[in-house]
Design a protein around this nucleic acid. Structure first.
Lengths: 103, 103
DNA sequence: CAGAATCCTCACCGATACTG
DNA sequence: CAGTATCGGTGAGGATTCTG
């Protein structure tokens, strides 16, 4: 999801560059996610046989299509953070059916 | 995700009705998902104190906003199933770096 | 730099039984 | 009907180490 957003501007990005942009993601998960997206045909992985190695990831046409849709959701949720936060606070305050963990 | 899509037409739906529409979902997961969505303020849960009980779920205005965005992604992926399938097949055939589990 | 390999934990989820 | 409660396994993912 956010990996797609990080690439949504159409630029090619290197592995650690992505990793920095998606702060908090582990190397394992990023690798795994990129492989999955590559497998779906949403991005291409290009290895330049230099030393040190350089690997670039770039969205395919297919990838850009869905990245745009995902981006819209990201923007929507960013624009609604306050309402969402308020809803959560309200829900937790009124603490419905399953009794909360209030001792 | 799909729970939002199932409610995207704006109708109120009952628990087992949703469960049937989302075939494969367990009762536990559906309950859990509905609670989460309710907590985010994306849907309302209305209990009619009849016997047997009747509980209706309906998207809020906020929920309809995001449901529409999610619906677009669902439609997109439905429209691209063949390309996605082909990409997967191709990827698996060429089986990149991490050696596949081919014995 | 861009990973692969290994180990290990715990929380996710299914299955099952019970209830107002 | 619409849940809650409990148990148990399993696999996702973190941490760490190693490499071309």
């Amino acid at each position: 999801m956010l990996t797609l957003v990080a690439l949504a501007d159409g630029r090619a990005m290197r592995f650690n560059e992505l990793r920095r942009r998606l702060e908090g993601v582990t190397q394992k998960m990023l690798t795994q996610t990129l492989r999955a997206l590559e497998r779906e045909g949403l991005l291409t992985r290009t290895v330049y046989p230099t030393v040190p190695p350089r690997v670039e990831y770039r969205l395919t046409a297919l990838g850009e299509e869905i990245a745009e849709l995902v981006l819209r959701i990201a923007e929507w949720s960013a624009s609604r953070t306050e309402q969402l936060r308020a809803a959560r606070a309200n829900f937790d305050r009124r603490a419905p059916h399953p009794r909360p963990l209030s001792a």
